[in-house]
Computed example of a mutant assay.
Amino acid sequence: MQVGESPVWRAQENALYWVDIPAQKIVRLRMDDSARTEWLLPERVACIAFAQGSGLIAGLETGVFAVTLPEAGSIGTASDEAPRAQVKKLAAPVHAAPDMRFNDGRCDRQGRFWAGTMVQDMSLANPAGALYRFDAEGVLSAPVIGGLVTQNGLAWSPDGKTMYLSDSHPSRRLVWAFDFDTDTGMPHNRRVFADLHHYVGRPDGAAMDADGCYWICANDAGRVLRFTPQGVLDREIAVPAVKPSMCAFGGSGLDTLFVMSIQPANRASEDDGAVFAVKPGVAGLPEPEYAGAL
Rank of each mutant, 00 (worst) to 15 (best):
Q2S: 10
V19Y: 04
V27T: 10
V27Q: 05
R28N: 05
L29R: 12
M31K: 08
A35L: 11
T37R: 14
F50R: 13
Q52P: 01
G55Q: 05
I57K: 02
L60W: 01
L60V: 11
T62K: 15
V64D: 00
F65R: 03
A66G: 09
V67I: 15
G76C: 11
T77S: 15
S79D: 12
D99H: 09
D99S: 09
N103V: 08
A115I: 06
G116T: 06
V119P: 01
A128G: 14
A130P: 01
Y132V: 14
Y132H: 04
R133M: 11
D135I: 12
V139Y: 08
L148S: 01
T150Q: 10
S157I: 10
M163A: 15
M163F: 14
D167I: 13
S168I: 00
R172A: 15
R173D: 02
A177F: 05
T182P: 02
R190M: 14
F193Q: 06
Y199S: 06
V200G: 06
G201W: 01
G205N: 06
A207S: 10
M208D: 05
D209R: 04
A210F: 02
G212P: 07
C213G: 12
C217F: 02
A221H: 00
R223M: 12
F227C: 12
P229R: 04
Q230C: 06
E236I: 15
E236L: 07
V239G: 00
V242C: 05
P244Q: 13
P244E: 01
S245M: 06
C247D: 00
S252I: 12
G253D: 11
D255Q: 00
I262A: 13
A268M: 04
S269H: 12
D272I: 06
A274T: 03
A274V: 00
F276Y: 13
A277W: 03
G284A: 09
G284K: 09
P286H: 07
E287Y: 01
P288N: 11
E289R: 15
G292M: 08
